[in-house]
């Protein structure tokens, strides 16, 4: 899973497989971070507080 684990080899299989994995994880992580941070900023700016159902 990580290059520092002894099974890791710098070969095509590892780079393609783990590349795909970390690519997906990065998008998910960055997407969530963006949403949470933006929600915090929006809340600080008072958005949503006058919201009614």
């Amino acid at each position: 899973m990580f290059p520092f684990i002894f099974e890791w080899m710098w070969d095509m299989s590892h780079v393609v497989f783990m590349g795909g994995l970390w690519y997906a994880l990065t998008i998910i992580g960055l997407g969530m971070t963006y949403c949470i941070l933006k929600a915090a900023v929006d809340t600080a700016q008072g958005k949503g507080s006058h919201h009614h159902e």
């Binding site: 998008i27 963006y34 949403c35 933006k38 929600a39 929006d42």
Partner: peptide, 27 residues
């Protein structure tokens, strides 16, 4: 939804949902 932070988070998640959906389709 009455909690402003949650309301905003929900709104933001909807905004970028296409990105998550695309990642989901890939996975």
């Amino acid at each position: 939804d009455k909690v402003p932070f949650f309301h905003n988070l929900s709104h933001n998640l909807h905004e970028v949902m296409a990105v998550f959906a695309a990642t989901g389709a890939f996975l």
